[in-house]
Simulated scan of single mutants.
Amino acid sequence: MTGRTVDNSANVGFVATEHWSWALAGHAGEIRARTWPNPRAHWLAVLVHGYGEHIGRYQHVADALIEAGAVVIGNDHVGHGESAGERVLFRDFESVVDDLHEVIVQTDAEHRNLPIVLIGHSLGGMIATRYAQRHRDELTALVLSGPVLGSWKALDLLKYEEIPEDPIDVSTLSRDPGVGSAYAADPLVWHGPFRRRTLWAIEKCLGTIDAHGPFGDDLPALWLHGGEDELVPIAETRTGIDRVRGLGFEEIEYPGARHEIFNETNSKQVLGDVVSFVHRVLG
């Protein structure tokens, strides 16, 4: 672990928990990670961000989890945010899972006795699901927010000889227009087209998840999804969910909510549902 600094400059205007910024070697260069400390923590929350974004967008999520008794960690995936690598290029998601595992291992050395709850959003939900299949014994619970599973309409772009410029309609992120405006203005967010190699890697990972099946009846899991999610439609996700869900599985659909439910107008309700689930699991 190298390069630890304290930074809360992105949170001007409200009181937010300070975080440590640190670095480690990933499969394709330096990976940047954050730890939001909590000296009274009794569980470890691991945040896994989605495609094209970065872990810095999860400050308010970390704050809510810290208030609920967690120490929180998360990293920018390869080619995302402040991590090294060609922008938004994923060659193989098994290596991305390896990076995430190394982040958890290095953090767990400091929080060795805390139960781990993995929380993945969007493409991060796909990564978190594959992580749960490979490292089930490490996890106490899994939370999936609008996860890419089963099928994903973005893969239709592979039919084009040249991937078209098709920027995200920011209005599909949240009913709060401020969320879309902040996303569009964020220099660490990717605003360009998909990489063909990334789409191939996503398609391969979805197939791998389907082939490996349920991550176990003894892993409590919570699936959260916006009922009006146009970026990752709930019907597409359900086909994948049905292949991995075990007996300890719960789901909540939020009518009217769009893709980024942690940034939705009812985000306090969503985060409250996450906290309630974790507290039930922890007993």
Score class of each variant (00 low, 15 high):
V97S: 06
H191M: 07
E251N: 07
A185S: 13
V278S: 04
H111P: 00
R136G: 11
P167G: 08
A109M: 09
T239R: 05
E162A: 05
G56N: 14
L142G: 03
R4V: 14
H42C: 13
W200M: 14
G79T: 13
F249W: 15
Q106I: 02
R245I: 09
H212R: 12
V278T: 10
A45S: 09
G256S: 07
V61A: 14
L44Q: 11
R197G: 04
D242P: 01
T172E: 15
V148C: 09
C205L: 09
R258P: 00
P220E: 11
G3S: 14
E250L: 09
E86K: 15
P115S: 05
H49L: 06
V96F: 05
A41I: 06
I55Q: 12
I168C: 03
E67G: 06
L173M: 07
H27W: 11
A201N: 12
V103A: 06
R32N: 14
H42Y: 12
V274F: 03
P177Q: 06
Q59K: 00
A257Q: 08
Q269N: 02
A70Q: 04
I55A: 12
R175L: 10
Y160R: 02
H121E: 15
S276R: 14
I127N: 08
E18H: 03
R197E: 15
G124K: 02
V12Q: 15
S145N: 10
P37R: 13
V6S: 10
A10N: 11
D218E: 15
L157M: 13
H60W: 09
H77A: 08
R32V: 15
G216V: 14
T172I: 00
G69Y: 10
L158N: 08
V61M: 08
P37G: 05
P214E: 09
L139S: 05
R91W: 00
H212T: 07
Y131V: 01
V78Y: 04
G85H: 09
D92Q: 10
E138I: 07
F249V: 03
G26H: 02
N113Y: 02
P167A: 11
A68V: 06
A62N: 03
V275W: 04
D218C: 00
V244C: 04
R57Y: 07
T129L: 10
F262W: 13
R134C: 10
T140M: 01
H225P: 11
R238Q: 15
I116V: 15
D176F: 08
P39A: 15
E250W: 03
L89T: 14
L65Y: 07
T2M: 10
P115A: 09
D7F: 07
R134T: 10
H49T: 03
G56H: 12
G216D: 06
